[in-house]
Amino acid sequence: MKQRIHPLLIAFAVLVFFFLLGPLVIILGSAVSDTNYLTFPPQGLTLRWFTNIFEISAFVRTMKTSFLLAVGGTALSMAIGIPAAYALARFRFQLPAFLGNIYVLPILIPEIVLGFSLMKTVAIGADVPIMLALLLGHALIVLPYCVRVVGASLNSFDFSIEEAAVSLGCPRWKAFFTVVLPNVRAGIIAGFILAFITSLNDVSVSIFLTGPGVSTLPIQLLAHMEQFFDPTIASVSVLLMGVTVAVMAIVERTLGLTFLTK
């Protein structure tokens, strides 16, 4: 659908993109400012705020936790989400239709309610160790991405290829790993990476499950912001934006970014 558009509308859209990217540029600028306070445009250029991140042990520790949690939670979610998505696509008429809706409940239920409930019932009520509770919480909030994105790939997969392999004597489990999975690889990679970034940025579930012992990077950032207002926060933010760029590059390579507009 192509039409000529009014120049005023174009000007408006330009302003909107300025509004969307400007604040991120400001963070970038204030992260390299050679001052002890946050300022923009930067005065002087320095990378010392980046090295400063690694001198604050809380940042280093929570960065590791966040990374482990994002990889572990997503891996767990994929390990159970891929079979579920496969079952939904392959046995569409043998499973009740509402099953697909159950997997998206983590998006439907407010995350902050989920976090509170997990803390109350699982972490404290059932005495589950905090790291395990966090892992389960993160696996839950990324499950919709795993099932949906992999499911989208599976829906366009021709299952007769799998049947052909089986009828030629290939065991079912082997056909799944050597025929089905390689064909939906793009969906798995894109789903993994979207789930990873969702978990890495999560606040609402983690905030209830972290404490003095275990914390994640976004929660540590929030706590740090309430006490200090130096460019270290900006430099951590820039690191996180770097992760976003990497994520976008991977999604672009696999499914293409236009996938996100569908």
Binding site: F17, V203, L222
Partner: peptide
């Protein structure tokens, strides 16, 4: 390009994006 420009903030965390407004709107802000 425009889609990339819209996806980038979307995939950047809530804390980072809210922090930007703390820098912009603060008493000594931009």
């Amino acid at each position: 390009l425009l889609i990339i420009a819209a996806v980038f903030p979307l995939l950047t965390g809530v804390v980072v994006r809210s922090f930007a407004w703390l820098v912009i709107l603060g008493k000594n802000g931009i």
